[in-house]
Simulated scan of single mutants.
Amino acid sequence: MSEPVRLSKRLIEQLGCSRREAEQYIEGGWVTVDGVVVEQPQFKIDGQQVALLPGARAEALEPVTLLINQPAGMDAESARASIGMDNLSQAHSQDVRPLHGHFARLACVAPLERGATGLQLFTQDWRVTGKIERDLRKLEQEYIIEVRGQASPQALERLARGITRNDRELPKAKASWQNETHLRLALKNPQPGQISELCASLRLEIVSMRRIRLGGVSMGKLPLGQWRYVAVTERF
């Protein structure tokens, strides 16, 4: 009886390819074992049928950028750990073929303030990380903030001109009422605590805040706790 062998080794034997090429075929989702795609080169097989899918390419995976609608009570690390095949938004699952390799080496960029929910961004692409870090000061971020209290349109307009609180200049912000209890706020590069200070200046108490946009990338109708790929055509 033969000993089980690694899937990558069996593929090398069948194709006469290099070890790296075998790993790229497997990690790219091009290899099936008895008709089921297996993405782990170390997967042990015995007598199963190993085959390549049509169009198979031995190429390194292109880096991806993912966006999750982070729920309350979750930090960036637990949000990253929650990303998997089972919570990919079905409405956004047609553009990219999801692979397990897309969940490795994800870095959080422009992280949410502690206690905030909504748009949290993770990327494998150093070019995306570099661009966001360089442009963060001028990237507008948009929040929906549930508040207690009332503020007049004139008070909201003052935020657009810039205000000072406790001898500190706060960032200019565009603010409008979405409804009686939710404020829509857009500002550039808010530092921890600054949104709270802006609301406090209006005598508004924050109940919750949710980020819905970072630069030109919007969360859209992404369900809570689910994620999607950021398309290459989207621009921060």
Results as ranks from 00 to 15, higher is better:
L66A: 06
A72N: 13
P71T: 12
G225K: 01
M85W: 10
L121E: 01
R165C: 11
L121A: 01
D46F: 14
I68Q: 01
Y25E: 02
G28Y: 02
E234K: 05
I12C: 15
R127T: 15
G215D: 13
L156C: 01
N179K: 06
Q49P: 00
L204V: 02
N166D: 15
L136D: 11
G216D: 11
Q120E: 14
E197A: 11
L119Y: 03
H102L: 05
E3W: 11
L106C: 08
Q191P: 08
A160G: 09
A22M: 09
H92W: 03
K221L: 09
A104M: 10
L202V: 04
E180V: 09
G216H: 06
E157P: 03
R114L: 10
L67C: 14
V207T: 10
P171C: 00
Q150N: 13
S18Y: 07
R97T: 15
F103T: 07
Y25M: 01
C17E: 07
S208I: 08
C199E: 04
P111Y: 08
K221H: 09
D86V: 15
L222W: 02
R211S: 05
G47P: 00
L136Y: 09
G215S: 12
A51Q: 14
P190M: 11
R20D: 09
I195K: 02
S152K: 10
P192H: 11
Q70N: 09
R105C: 08
E146C: 13
Q150T: 10
E59C: 10
Q194H: 07
S201W: 11
M85Q: 13
P71W: 05
L187N: 01
